[in-house]
C-alpha cells in the first residue's frame, strides 16, 4: 500500500507528461524542422532579422488567438474577430477625426480625444461580444452561426462608417503613435503588448479558477453545470473577452497604418482558428492551450515567410499554407491517437 501513495507525490508516477505538454513539444519540433528546412533552401533565411520579423508580423494573430483559444477550449467558435478588427480600426479613426464642417465626409469625425475614442471603440466591441453571448450562451444557438452573423454586422458597421473605404484624413499625430513605437529592429510596442497578453492568458489558463472552469465547460458542459459552474455567464464572459481582444488588435493595427481601413482583418478569424488548431486545441472543446496557439502562430508565420522567400507567386501561398496546416494537424492527431492507444 505504501508504494502507490509514494508514487502519487511525484509529479507523475508513470513519468509521462500530459497530452497537452506532449502536443506542445511535438508542435515545437515541427516549428524547428520547418525553420531548419526554410534555412536550408532559402538564402539568408537563417538570421536574427527573420526571427524578429516573425514576431513583428504575427503579433496580431496571437492576440486574436488568445480569445479564440479560450472559446475553443470551452467548446465554442468565434468567427467574428476579423470583422471586429476592421470595425474597431474604422471606429477609432472616426471617433478621433476632427468634427469641423470643412472636411469631406470621409474626413469628418467626432473630434474626441484619442483616449476617449479608444474607450468608446472598445465599448462597441464589447457590445458585439454581448450579442454573441446573448445568442450563444443564453439562447443556445450554434456558435458558428451566431459569430458568422456578428462578423458580418461588425464588418458592416466598419464599411458604413468608412463609406466602404478608409478613414485617415485629419487624424492627429497621436493616433499613429501607439502602433509605431519601435522597440528593437522591426519589433514595435504592439508585439510587446501581445507578449504581455500572452503571459496574462497563460496565467489565467493554468492558475485560476476562471481558466479551470473554461476547461470544465469544454470537457462536459452538463457535468460542469451540475458541478455548480455558472455556464452561461462564463461563456458570455469569454465572448466579451474575445471581442475586447479583437478590438485592441483593430485599434493597434489602425494606429500602425494611421488609418481606419474597413477591409482590415478580413480572413483573420480563419487564421486565428487555424493557429489555435495547430496548437493542439480540439474543435470539440476541453483541450487546447495558449502556449500551443503561440507555437501554431509561429508555424504559420514560418510557412508564410518561407513561401515569400521561395519566390512563390503570391497566389500559391494559400495552397502552401493549407498543405502545411493539414499535414501538421493530421500528424498531431496520429501521434496523439498512437500515444493514447
Amino acid at each position: 500500500m505504501n508504494k502507490p501513495i509514494k508514487a502519487l507525490n511525484a509529479r507523475s508516477a508513470t513519468g509521462k507528461i500530459s497530452n497537452e505538454a506532449f502536443l506542445n513539444r511535438v508542435m515545437f519540433l515541427v516549428l524547428i524542422v520547418l525553420f531548419a528546412l526554410a534555412s536550408i533552401f532559402i538564402d539568408k533565411y537563417f538570421s536574427t532579422a527573420t526571427a524578429l520579423n516573425l514576431i513583428a508580423n504575427n503579433w496580431y494573430i496571437v492576440i486574436l488567438g488568445i480569445g479564440v483559444t479560450f472559446l475553443l477550449v470551452s467548446g465554442h467558435l468565434d468567427m467574428s474577430v476579423g470583422g471586429i478588427v476592421g470595425m474597431a480600426g474604422v471606429l477609432s479613426a472616426y471617433f478621433t477625426q476632427p468634427a469641423n464642417e470643412g472636411f469631406s465626409e470621409l474626413g469628418q469625425g467626432l473630434g474626441l480625444p484619442y483616449g476617449v475614442a479608444i474607450l468608446l471603440t472598445l465599448l462597441v466591441c464589447l457590445f458585439i461580444g454581448m450579442l454573441n453571448a446573448l445568442f450563444i450562451a443564453k439562447m443556445r444557438v450554434a456558435s458558428i452561426i451566431v459569430t458568422l452573423g456578428t462578423m458580418s454586422i461588425a464588418r458592416g458597421i466598419g464599411q458604413v462608417a468608412a463609406l466602404g473605404a478608409q478613414r485617415s484624413a485629419g487624424l492627429p499625430d497621436l493616433f499613429g503613435v501607439i502602433g509605431n513605437v519601435p522597440l528593437f529592429g522591426p519589433i514595435k510596442i504592439a508585439a510587446a503588448i501581445a507578449a504581455i497578453l500572452v503571459v496574462i492568458a497563460l496565467f489565467i489558463e493554468k492558475k485560476t479558477s476562471f481558466g479551470r472552469r473554461t476547461y470544465l465547460i469544454g470537457a462536459n458542459r452538463e457535468a460542469a453545470r451540475l458541478s455548480g459552474v455558472k455556464v452561461e455567464l462564463h461563456i458570455g464572459l469569454l465572448y466579451m473577452l474575445s471581442a475586447l481582444l479583437a478590438g485592441i488588435t483593430g485599434i493597434l493595427l489602425a494606429s500602425e497604418m494611421k488609418a481606419g481601413i474597413s477591409t482590415r482583418g478580413a480572413g483573420f478569424e480563419f487564421n486565428a482558428l487555424v493557429v489555435t488548431l495547430l496548437g493542439g486545441a480540439s474543435i470539440d472543446g476541453g483541450v487546447g492551450s495558449v502556449l500551443g496557439m503561440v507555437i501554431g502562430a509561429l508555424i504559420l508565420g514560418v510557412v508564410s515567410s518561407a513561401a515569400y522567400g521561395l519566390l512563390l507567386r503570391p497566389e500559391w501561398q494559400f495552397i502552401l499554407k493549407a498543405v502545411v496546416t493539414f499535414l501538421a494537424i493530421i500528424a498531431q492527431r496520429y501521434l496523439l491517437d498512437r500515444r493514447n492507444k
Binding site: R212, R213, Y215, N220, A223, A224, S227, G286
Partner: peptide
C-alpha cells in the same frame, strides 16, 4: 460519463471541480 465526469480531464481536476473555491 455524460453528467458526472469530465472524462477528458485528470482525476485531480475532476475531484476539485465542485469546490474550486
Amino acid at each position: 460519463r455524460t453528467q458526472g465526469l469530465f472524462t477528458l480531464l485528470t482525476i485531480k481536476h475532476n475531484i476539485s471541480a465542485m469546490n474550486l473555491k
